[in-house]
Amino acid sequence: MLTVHHLGISQSERAVWLCEELGLDYKFKRYDRRADNRLAPDEYKALHPAGMAPVVEDGDLVLAESGAICEYIDRKYGGAKHCLDVDHPDFADHLFWFHFTNGTFMTNGMMQLMLAMADPQNDMPTGFVADRTAKAWDMVEKRLGEAEFFGGSQLTLADIMMVYCITTGRMMRQVPLDDKPNTVAYLQRIGQREAYQRAWAKCEPGIEPNLA
């Protein structure tokens, strides 16, 4: 049986949400972050050589990386329902946003944080990355004014990947959405999905999802 190991407030919520969208019978195991440094506990780090979330197990397979995990689950258990075929008119858009998530969007925030920590007196590198980050958020807002989902006309893995960045991931950086009505409207639509509600209740009980 597929086992999803979820670390609280982490990217592993993507795998849980996808499993709920597919209506899978899967095993869910939740881990709290350490109180002293907010990192994964040793028990979680021992699951995979990468030592970080997310991780799933499927028989003898232990798989990390949220993009790989989501594609694996969708192709093996979902009939590639959320992976558009090359002949689909939304294929390129789905592919772009699926890879943009961790390749660019999340990387911008991490670069900004690391550069600031390395040299707090140097505003140039952090300003450069801040500009890239702002442009990425503008792209998100524009896209969600053009299409119902990141992947186009239907929910795809692009949405499964991106939603974490603009909900839970935003909790860590306090990014306001006051000037992004399309993004807020999209998040409200996602929040109404029963599968998302079930996944969130499992992943973060007692915490309201960051949908505004």
Rank of each mutant, 00 (worst) to 15 (best):
V4F: 03
H5Y: 13
E13Y: 13
L18Y: 11
L18M: 09
C19E: 01
E21T: 13
E21R: 14
G23I: 04
D25E: 08
D25G: 10
D25T: 03
D25N: 11
R33L: 04
R33E: 03
R33T: 10
R33I: 02
R34Q: 14
A35H: 11
D36Y: 09
D36P: 06
N37E: 06
R38A: 12
R38I: 10
P41F: 15
Y44R: 15
Y44W: 15
H48D: 04
A50Y: 10
A50I: 10
M52L: 14
M52T: 08
A53V: 03
P54C: 14
D60C: 08
D60V: 04
L61D: 00
V62G: 02
L63T: 03
G67R: 12
I69K: 06
E71G: 08
Y77F: 13
G78H: 07
G79E: 09
C83Q: 04
L84V: 04
V86C: 05
D90T: 01
F91N: 00
F91M: 01
H94R: 06
L95V: 05
F96E: 00
W97N: 00
F98W: 10
F98C: 01
H99Y: 11
M110S: 12
L115W: 01
L115E: 05
P120R: 14
N122C: 12
M124T: 09
P125Q: 02
P125V: 07
G127S: 09
F128D: 02
A134D: 07
K135D: 13
D138F: 12
E146K: 15
G151F: 02
G152Q: 02
S153A: 10
L155R: 07
L157T: 03
A158D: 00
I160Q: 00
M161F: 07
C165D: 02
C165E: 01
T167R: 10
M172K: 04
L177I: 08
D178W: 15
K180E: 05
P181N: 12
V184Y: 06
A185M: 12
A185Q: 09
A185F: 10
Q188H: 03
G191I: 04
Q192F: 09
E194A: 08
R198N: 12
W200Q: 01
C203V: 04
P205Y: 11
E208I: 06
E208S: 01
P209N: 08
L211R: 11
L211W: 14
A212I: 15
A212G: 15
A212Q: 14
A212F: 15
